[in-house]
Amino acid sequence: MIKEQALSRNDLAKIWNASCGKHEAIEKNVHDLLAKLAWDFSPEQLEQLFDCFRESWTKASKKQREKLLELIRRLAEDDKEGLMANKVLELLWNISHDKLFPNEIIDQALAAHLKILDYSCLPEKEKTKLSWIDRMMEEVKQDQHVIISLKQMREICTQFSEHAYMHNMSRISYPLNRISLIDRLEEKHKITRVITENLCHYMENTRNCRE
């Protein structure tokens, strides 16, 4: 039915709504079904599913959000094409920036974000990590979500090896270990200066608030 594009937007909405506010067992069954069906979704169907995710965050209880996070993470972990994993990474990062969510949900979203980066079947996984580090550095430069960005950057950096591997070095265009990664961050983003200036700005604002 899905492969023949016979599943309409209305059908997908009905499947999703079948789990909303229902018993935990029903919710689990629907999530398991969607986790299997999603691999054959068209781009339009996949986008609709993610729209359902986004809409559900505003209504879900803490426990429902935890279940939703689990489903989102499952969709990304075995994605060999990268399309779903990248969409999930984007969604999780946006969740971590939403001030309406409690710290527990934000922490879970960030943990899932890290796990997908580290364990997923993303093509060119190391380059994907670098692109996220670059994005987080830009947020720090703009003084936006500084603490979350720096903490997540640190965790991503620890996913790189402490030691370089010598084989095939000439064919690899990304850092091989943490030292070369730090060198790249310093060269591209002037990370030491950016963090120092940000800290000074924070301390100045703190002093002004106390006066």
Rank of each mutant, 00 (worst) to 15 (best):
P102R: 08
N198Y: 02
K151W: 00
E77H: 02
N208Q: 14
P102C: 02
H145G: 05
L181R: 08
Y165N: 09
G21P: 09
T192L: 07
E124F: 11
S61Y: 04
E24W: 09
K22N: 10
D51P: 00
K141E: 07
L130D: 01
E155Q: 15
K87R: 15
R207C: 06
S180K: 10
L69G: 15
D183N: 10
M1L: 11
R193H: 09
D40A: 13
I156Q: 02
T128V: 14
K59D: 13
P43D: 01
C121G: 01
E124K: 15
K80D: 10
R54S: 12
I191M: 12
R178H: 07
K28R: 15
K87G: 00
I15S: 04
E138M: 10
E24V: 13
R74L: 06
M153R: 06
T196S: 12
D78L: 07
D118N: 15
H31R: 11
D134F: 04
N168T: 01
A6T: 05
N29Q: 14
K3Y: 04
E187V: 00
L199R: 14
A35Q: 10
A13W: 08
N94T: 06
S161D: 14
W39K: 12
D11H: 15
K3C: 08
W132I: 06
N17R: 12
Q48N: 03
I15T: 12
I2F: 11
E81C: 10
E155W: 05
F50T: 02
I15C: 06
A35K: 11
I105L: 04
V88C: 10
E4G: 12
P102Y: 01
T58P: 00
A109R: 07
L69D: 03
R154Y: 10
P175V: 02
T192N: 07
C52E: 14
N208D: 10
G82F: 07
I2V: 15
K188D: 08
R184V: 00
K67I: 02
N10R: 12
L199Q: 09
K80L: 09
